[in-house]
Design a protein around this nucleic acid. Structure first.
Length: 570
RNA sequence: GGGCGGGUGGCCUAGUCUGGAUAUGGCAGCAGCCUCCUAAGCUGCAGGUCGGGGGUUCGAAUCCCUCCCCGCUCGCCA
């Protein structure tokens, strides 16, 4: 239990007994108002009806009954609210000690039961990742980090779409086209280099019936499970994936496992799904193709028919995804998917089919809205696209210039390292800070913002703490912390105390945008403290150094759970 | 047309699940602050019909109804 939980539990306990003596039994809400106002507050409106008294008089009565004790230093009523101030010396001591002892584990929850399998990214391996799709790995990776911080055991997985006309087309192109037949790529990376082959093959297929036929035949052999063709396609997909992995690594995203869609054709499990679905009463055959009627699963209108085979009997994307999910059920207790909003219907069909097959479980999905450009939706075809690689390069370049301006004395390697931490951090932060469901318009000046609500702001506060700590060299970590009574100090303590709860809630509610919100607020409070309260050579130097170090770890841990580096200087 | 999701100062955004005291911050704008631990910072000013309208409630950005706008989706594609 973290410090704040102890205080909250204590107050609730005191209130339960006092409310009982007033004649109220049951649950009640305790709030965390604006810190200027109070630490905890009990709105007494909720009791007025049951007790047939005015909220004001209830609050007044309770204020007289609830006495001050070791945890509570002040109780008062204010317009129907019963307000509390807690013993900040005690809270501060508990929180700061906890942070100093646990350091990078401060805020980490106790190990939780149940293995989590989190699928994210899973972008089609037909070209480089653009910022429209980059939301997926960044949300997924951050959620994975956050859940791990909460105490969950998490495995992350990329579902590689190595089936279908697109990848076959790419494979054909790589086989038959020469380097001089395709457009010159701006980068040597595989994903950028190969996309030209895909585009050229696509054009050829559209103009030449012979090519179209070749590709159709290749696709048929693939669908039929021809191991040779499947292996061939997988080789090109792996080549593309190499580039994609590099892009992901650049923004600090590393997945534990890659699952190939073709696997479910090869091992027959997709076919098995088909056979099982055929035997259910929801299944109908039409023109050689099978579909499920999903009407009673809340899918209405034209969407009720979910086809799971073609007329030639081959499987479809969602059918193979079904086989994948059934296989995932065996490996984990809880499934989570990060998906684009265009996948909603597909997921609905998938979960309905799983129910029909008798599975009680379903994957928990987070759908994100697409990132568009001011000119409209991103489109590789129309050249209206910003690649993640370009965004990251630009961000690092910009950061490098800033570092050179501010810290000319640093050596080149250090400058580059800091620029990388800042640039990558800024990119991650800017995507993560917005709720997944909100549609986002990408603007360079916003993506490259290094001030205000941004990663560098939080990183800077962390570097400031480190700078003070570095200059202090040694200090008494056992200093008496009850001297931290200045308003700036108390505000900081209060912020630190929230951290474990923020992590817990961000994980439980799957609302990772709580992390940047908290990080910014904590950094802001540290900056205010920094400007107003001297630490080194001050009266309470050691106590303040303890506070600064506790803040340093909290900022560090907030950044790290967001997958952002916490540089010690910048 | 049906389904799902969004709509909060000029721009971006928190809060919405679980209704509470003056709606959170940032960017841009204006005015200040570096003989003192890094000014990627701090302080102040200005800026709001929480899309519109009804309802429920002692109390609504939050819950219910309705309408409007934007996005996604409605393939024997993936």
């Amino acid at each position: 239990m973290d410090a704040l939980e102890i205080f909250e539990g204590h107050i609730k306990e005191r209130l339960t007994s006092e409310l009982a003596s007033l004649g109220f039994e049951g649950d009640f809400g305790l709030e965390r108002p604006d810190h200027e106002m109070a630490d905890f507050a009990l709105p007494c409106f909720q009791f007025a009806k049951r007790l047939r008294r005015s909220p004001q008089s209830i609050a007044e009565d309770l204020a007289a009954r609830v006495s001050v004790d070791g945890h509570i230093t002040k109780v008062w009523n204010d317009r129907g609210y019963l307000n509390f101030r807690v013993n900040e010396g005690l809270l501060g001591t508990m929180v700061v000690r906890d942070a100093l002892e646990r350091r990078e584990d401060f805020g980490r929850g106790e190990p939780l039961d149940g293995r989590v399998l989190l699928e994210h990214t899973s972008v089609n391996p037909t070209g480089p990742i653009h910022v429209g799709r980059a939301r997926n790995p960044l949300i997924g990776d951050t959620l994975a980090r956050c859940l791990r911080m909460c105490g969950h055991e998490v495995t992350t997985e990329y579902y590689v779409n190595d089936v279908g006309k697109q990848v076959v087309l790419l494979t054909w192109g790589l086989e038959h086209l020469d380097e001089k037949d395709v457009a010159q790529a701006d980068r040597e990376k595989n994903d950028h280099r190969l996309v030209g082959y895909y585009q050229a093959a696509n054009r050829l297929m559209e103009s030449s019936p012979g090519v179209e036929k070749e590709i159709a035949q290749m696709t048929q052999r693939f669908e039929a499970g021809d191991p040779e063709v499947i292996a061939q396609v997988r080789r090109t997909v792996d080549l593309m994936l190499e580039g994609i992995k590099e892009s992901l690594g650049a923004v600090n995203v590393f997945l534990d496992r890659y699952a190939y869609e073709s696997q479910f054709i090869l091992d027959g499990s997709a076919k098995e799904v088909v056979e099982r679905l055929k035997r259910t009463p929801y299944c109908t055959l039409e023109d050689g193709a099978y579909f499920l009627n999903l009407e009673e699963f809340g899918v209405h209108g034209r969407d009720t028919r979910f086809f799971f085979t073609r007329k030639d009997g081959t499987t479809l994307y969602t059918t193979r995804d079904l086989a994948y999910h059934i296989e995932k059920f065996r490996r984990a207790d809880r499934l989570m998917n990060i998906l684009g909003e265009d996948q909603k219907l597909g997921q609905k069909q998938l979960t309905s089919a799983l129910r029909i097959l008798g599975f009680e479980r379903a994957p928990e999905c987070i759908f994100y809205s697409f990132v568009s450009l001011p000119e409209g939706r991103m489109s590789t075809r129309q050249g209206r696209v910003v690649y993640l690689d370009d965004l990251v390069d630009e961000a690092m370049e910009r950061a490098y210039k800033e570092v050179c301006d501010r810290r000319p004395e640093l050596d080149e390697g250090k400058k580059r390292g800091i620029a990388r931490d800042i640039g990558v951090g800024a990119v991650r932060y800017n995507i993560i800070r917005v709720q997944a469901e909100k549609q986002l318009v990408f603007k360079w000046e916003e993506a490259l913002n290094f001030e205000g609500n941004s990663a560098p702001f939080v990183q800077y506060a962390h570097a400031r703490c480190c700078s003070i700590l570095r200059k202090a060299t040694d200090y008494n970590k056992g200093a008496d912390l009850s001297v931290l009574t200045d308003p700036y100090e108390r505000k900081l303590v209060w912020m630190l105390a929230q951290f474990p709860e923020v992590v817990r809630q961000a994980g439980e509610k799957r609302r990772i945008n709580m992390l940047p919100t908290y990080g910014h607020e904590l950094a802001s409070v540290l900056n205010q403290f920094y400007g107003a309260v001297p630490v080194l050579r001050s009266e309470h130097q050691d106590a303040r150094l303890c506070l600064v170090e506790a803040t340093r770890w909290t900022l560090h841990n907030t950044l790290v759970t967001m997958g952002i580096a916490a540089p010690e200087e910048m």
